[in-house]
Computed example of a mutant assay.
Amino acid sequence: MDRYQSMKTFVRVVETGSFSAAARLLNVGQPAVSKTIAQLEDHLQVRLLIRSTHGLTPTEAGLRFHERAKSAIQEADEAELAARGAGAGLSGRLRVSAATTFARLHIVPLLPRFLEQHPGLEIDVILDDRLIDLVAEGVDVSLRMGALLDSSAVARRLATGGRSVVATPAYLAQAGTPQSPADLADHEAVIYSQLPNVWSFTRESTEASVSVRGRVRVSAAEGLRAAVLADVGLTITSDWMFGPELASGAVRRVLEDWALPPLDLWAVFPAGRMASAKARVFASFVDRAPNPNFYRLCWSSSAM
């Protein structure tokens, strides 16, 4: 029995709550996971998991072993990294999650360079605009924007980006250019369903909020981008989403003398376990990566 691999399997089972989910993350069959856990319990001469129709629950001994196993795996990974040299020789699989459009525009183009630096590494990129359970999905690091709702999350702020109201010249030629936030009430807005449809602005000491309306609502940023480029209406968005179009003039900012709350970019690591060396190195790579459309047009570095 490979004790190290057995510990990794057990930790995955506990964190995902099932043999099948752990098997999927480990890229092995469910019978192999079940057999590994049975061999581990036989080796330790103690029951680690209670199996029921409701799922798997760690016993008291299982909980103690889980915490020690997590620490042992972390220390082994750190020792291996230190022996090879910090940031060098990363190997295995790294699971990264990010919003679909953000990843397509600003993360996926960076992957060839990162993989070239770490030829022994494989990367799974989970694309989802919704917040996902990092532990259940086996994610090592998630790139998220906005306020962090989970106070227990372990996170590192990578950058801060601006936000604007944008539209195409064709839409503005047809509907007119708003001169104040109040004018937005008379415009067709493309509404992102994951955010409120009340937009708040500031200018010096003045604050203004407006409830916008629109016949098109989208559940993903990719749809928001496509609708604006199709001249459907104007929208409020992070500048990173239209970096090239803003530079070329294909999309224009309006109400530029009014400010919108900025948006932070975070590297978020799963709560309850230490960030892996691979996850930390990847977050640092994104933080330092020279991507002009990402940083120069949209973000100011504020790494912590």
Rank of each mutant, 00 (worst) to 15 (best):
P292N: 11
D133M: 10
D42I: 08
D129C: 12
R93C: 11
S211P: 00
T177Q: 07
Q117P: 07
A153E: 02
N27E: 13
Q74A: 13
R3Q: 15
K8D: 07
P31Q: 11
L297Q: 06
R3C: 13
M1F: 13
G249I: 13
S238C: 09
R215C: 13
D150C: 11
L26Q: 01
P109L: 08
H118I: 00
T160W: 01
F201K: 03
P290H: 06
L90W: 03
T237D: 00
E188V: 12
V135R: 14
S219F: 11
K278H: 08
P109Q: 06
G89L: 04
S97I: 06
D231M: 03
E137N: 14
R12M: 12
V96E: 03
D183L: 08
R64A: 12
F102A: 00
V154N: 05
R280K: 11
R215A: 15
A21I: 10
V135L: 11
R68K: 13
V11D: 01
A208D: 01
A61E: 13
L115Q: 09
P244C: 12
F285T: 00
G138Q: 04
G87P: 03
A277D: 04
E245Q: 14
V33F: 05
D257P: 05
M274I: 09
L90M: 08
V135G: 06
T206E: 14
A99I: 02
D42F: 11
L49A: 11
A226C: 11
R253W: 11
P262M: 04
H187M: 14
R104N: 06
V216H: 02
L110T: 01
A83N: 09
V210S: 03
I37N: 02
E204V: 08
A185R: 15
A275V: 02
G92Y: 14
A271N: 09
N197S: 15
G138C: 10
A21S: 08
G89Y: 00
S219Y: 06
F242Q: 00
A72F: 05
V139H: 03
R203V: 07
S276Q: 12
V46M: 07
D128C: 09
R163W: 12
R217Q: 11
P262Y: 03
V154A: 08
Y295D: 04
R215N: 14
I37E: 02
D264L: 01
E122D: 12
D133Q: 07
S20L: 07
Q45M: 13
E122K: 12
S209T: 10
Q39Y: 03
F65I: 04
G272T: 15
L158F: 11
E67D: 12
P244H: 00
L110S: 09
A185N: 10
A32E: 07
